[in-house]
Structure formats: structure tokens, C-alpha cells
Simulated assay, not measured.
Amino acid sequence: MRNIFFLSVFFLIFSGCSKSNETQNESLMISSVKLPAKANVNANVNADTDSYDRSPDLSAPKMEQKIIKEATLRFETDDLENTFNQIQKAVTAGKATIINDSEGKDYGTVFRNLTVKVPSQNFDRFINDISKGVSYFEIKNISAQDVTEQFIDLTSRLNTKKKLEERYLQILQKATKVSEILEIEKQISVIREEIEAKEGQLKYLQNRVSESTVTIEFYKTTAEKEGVKISYGSKIWTAVKSGFFSLSDFLISLISVWPFIIIFCVLAYFIRKRFKRKKQQS
């Protein structure tokens, strides 16, 4: 009996130790994939950004200079059609694209406005081709904006966000609890939105760098006394035609209101007839 009692006690002690070891191992596994606190994550992001900005990787290739070029031109011409043909030739030679074309007339001038997108490498050549034959520019404004620092800053922040996304994806593969998985996926969604926003900003800047915008306005001055050249007979004929058109408009307007004319005539007839009866009775 004594041996049986000692064996029972030994068995209980051994089973208790094994359960405690299993519990400790399980807690260690959970803690190994536990999600970092939000404050720590933000601190890591700031630390990564600061380290990149203050001590850049000197071994990385130097980024090409990014410059946005724009131009605005305004000048007078003797022939709008010939000037437009010259601009079209410059557009074809510079592999450019006309994205807006408008024309009009105001007091004393006939004008035409063009907006052209030109590949940046052909910008100078395009401006020179347009300037041929122009004696004087009323407006010639050419600007160049260096956005290289914006490119470097956006690129560094984008790389930082992508590295942070990779960390969360690694943690997600090890997570076991539903609450941890949901929290990690939430953080990944936020980071993905920030990555897409920065990629959009980089794409917008790259488009402005790769294609320059050129606004061209050219006009022709009309003669102030151009009407003197018209003969007297032509003026009379023009007046006759104008009167005929006015009469036609008047007749058309009468036809459009014919129901009201009929009603007015019927009422006038009955009123007149009634007055005649009254006179006869009196």
C-alpha cells in the first residue's frame, strides 16, 4: 500500500509539471508573434525616416535632376493660317501634342490660342521653331522648376512604408489569434493607402517632368476702317437683304401666334355686333 501511495503522488507531481511546461511554451509562442504597440510602430517609422534623411546611402546611384519646364508665348502675326501651319510643323518635329485649340474675335483683333504638351527633351527645339519669323513677343515667359528634392523625399518615404508593410506581412504569417490578425490587417490597410498616395504623387511629378506645357497665343489686327472699302451699291444691297430678313421674321412671329389673332378677331366681331344692336334699340 505504501508503494502504491508513493507512485500516485509521483504521478500527480509529474503530470502537473508537464502541464505547466506546456502552458509556458504556449505563452512563449503567442508572445513571439504579438503585435507591436502603435506607439512603437510610429516610433520605428519616424526613426527610419530620420535615419534616411540624415544619413543617406552614399553607395546608391545619384538621382537624375528633375525639372518641370513651362512656357507662355504671345505675339502678333500677319496671317493666322500660315502661323498655325508653322506651329503644326514644330509640333510634328518635336513629337508634341496639341491638347487645346480655341479661336475668337474681339474688338480690333482675331486671335487663336493653343496649349501644347512637349517632351521635355524637345522643349528648347520646339520654342526655337515657333520663334522663327516672330519679330516681337508681347509675352515670352519660360520657367523651370527643380523638383529633385521632392522626388528624393517622396521616394525615401515610399521605401520606408514598403519596408514597414513587409514587416507586418511577416508578423501576419506568424499570428494565431483572431484579434491579432484583424489588428495587423488594419495596419497593413492604412500603410497600403499611404503607399498608393505617395506613388500617385510621384507619378504626377514624373508626368510634369517628362512633358512640358507650352501656351501659345497669336493674333492679327483687323483694319479699323475696313468698311470704307465696301462700295455704295453693296451697302444698299446689304440693307435690302437685312430688311427682307426682318420682314420674314415679323411674318413668322405672326404665324406663331395665329390662335391668339383668331380669338381676338372673334371677340372684336361679337363686341361690334352687340354695340350695333344697342344703337338700333335706342
Rank of each mutant, 00 (worst) to 15 (best):
E194N: 15
E180H: 01
R277L: 10
I230G: 05
R167L: 08
L164C: 08
G94D: 00
Q280R: 11
I262H: 09
L7T: 15
E26A: 14
K95A: 11
G233F: 06
L58I: 12
N3G: 14
S102L: 05
S248G: 05
D106L: 01
M29W: 02
S246G: 10
F137E: 00
P36Q: 00
F126S: 06
K225W: 08
I216Q: 03
L73D: 00
I4Y: 13
V228N: 08
S31E: 08
T221V: 15
A268F: 12
K203W: 05
S282D: 13
D153T: 13
F151Q: 08
T49P: 03
I139H: 01
D53T: 10
N122T: 11
I68T: 10
S246I: 07
V240G: 04
R167Y: 09
N159S: 12
M29P: 02
I191L: 13
M29V: 09
S231V: 09
F111M: 07
E180Q: 05
K174Q: 11
N25R: 14
K279E: 13
Q170F: 04
A239K: 14
N44W: 15
S15R: 08
T238Q: 03
D57H: 09
G133E: 02
N128P: 02
T97A: 09
A37K: 13
T176W: 02
S55D: 14
K89T: 15
Y52H: 13
L169T: 09
Q145V: 14
K162D: 06
A239V: 10
L254Y: 08
I99N: 05
F5L: 15
